[in-house]
Structures are given as C-alpha cells and as structure tokens.
Amino acid sequence: MIVLALDTALSTCSVAIIRGPETLFDRFTFQAKGHAETLPPMAAAALSETGLIAADIDRIGVVVGPGQFTGVRVGLAFARGFALGRPNAIVGVNSLRALRDSAAIKGWIAPVVDARRGEVFAGLYDADGDERLQPFAAAPDAAAMRIAEAAGDADAICLLGSGAGLLPSDARFYRADTKSLRGIDPVAVARIAAEAPPPAGPPGPIYLRAPDAKKSAAALLAGAMAIPGGIRSESGTTDGG
C-alpha cells in the first residue's frame, strides 16, 4: 500500500510517502503560519521526486486535529480536493496519536498541546499504545488531574508536546527531551493511516472548541425566522443540504 501523509495541524508542515515499510519521501518545516502556501508545493515535490502520480496513492493520511483550526482545515481541504471522487481514500489521524507515535519513547505517554487561552489539548496512551483518554481540551490543572487519574497505577507518564511544560508537576510526570522530538513525524502519520481500517467516508476535523460567536438578542427572538439552508442547485439536482 502506498500512503501519502499530510500534516499542518500544529506548528509544523510536513509530507511523507511510504510504500509498505519503505519511506519514499519525508519533508518537514517548522512554521506556525502559512500552511496553505507551503503544503501544496511540498506535496507536489513528493509526487515529482518519487515519480508517482495521484492514482498510485492508495491512501491519504491527514492530521485532523486537535490543533490550529486554520492549519487543520488547510490539510483537510487539500486532502479532500486531492482525493475528489474517492473520499474513502482519506484517513483522518488525530494529532495527539501522531505525536505519540512520532516519539521513540516507551511506556505511558500523554501528548499535550498548547491550545492557548489558558487551555491545552491532551490525550493519554498506555505502554501498548492503546488510547486511554480521547483528545480533550481543558485547563492545565484539570488536564493534569484527568491524566493522573486515567493512568491508574502506571509508574511514570511522559508528557510530550508544546503544552507539556504548562501542566503542574506530579511525581509521576516526566518530560521528554524536546530536542529529540521535532513535532509530528509525517512518516508516523503515514503508518497510522496504513494500519487504520478502511474508512467509510471522509474524516472531519477535531476542533474540541466551539467557534467564537455570540448569539444576538434580535436573532434569539427571531430564531423562528431562520431560512433553512440547503444546496441550491441551478443544474437540476437538489437536496436538503
């Protein structure tokens, strides 16, 4: 199986192509912004340098968050455009699982990403790599408590990622050497996608946070007047959206 991996969810942008156990392409940049400008040329380089065409790609693994909303959407929209007409080729990979698999660390791992506004995105994986806590958003104190609780009688938990330093100390927590981990490794993303069961449809983003918007008083009163949405078709096909 040939897998194309795309990641723009955190402060990096990366692309990889693997064929079975073999890594054919692996590129990576550090950047907090500008993913929409960097990812497509990087993916173009991946195809041209490997001599592959889109039809050769059996699966596309794309990191769908939690992370920066804009970056998550860039990766997902690019993947959806790339795989147009074959939505079952796209596998969504969660950023915390991807971070965990990117680190060559054994034992319990809690990936923690700085979500800003006084929160972190966090999750927990046991020594076998099984997910013990699904990705969640919480204040650092609350996140530390949830992780410690869910880790049961584990001896040590490695905190990993940009938010690791935000969590309060706990006797069992230790922090990975961040120099050895540059962020999400696209090859790890590709492997997760390769091992995933066949997807039933295109993945959606993982935001873990509601959009910033206040309902207007007038709108609350006029709620019943909302116009129902739907795809308006000028070309003979309609549905209710």
Binding site: G229, E234, T237
Partner: peptide, 28 residues
C-alpha cells in the same frame, strides 16, 4: 453546465451576521 451553491444562512442566522469561524468550518 452546472452551478451548485450550499448556503450557510441557517448556521449564521442566530448570530445576526456571518461568523467567520462558523463559515470556515462549514466550508471545509
């Protein structure tokens, strides 16, 4: 030959205007 439009009116109606983050989420 075709022109498809998916309107998001209902998603923004309760906010009294277009909310950028809701629009972006809806588009993707």
């Amino acid at each position: 030959l075709s022109s498809e439009v998916w309107s998001q009116y209902d998603r923004h109606a309760e906010f009294g205007g277009v909310v950028p983050e809701i629009a972006a989420r809806s588009h993707v």
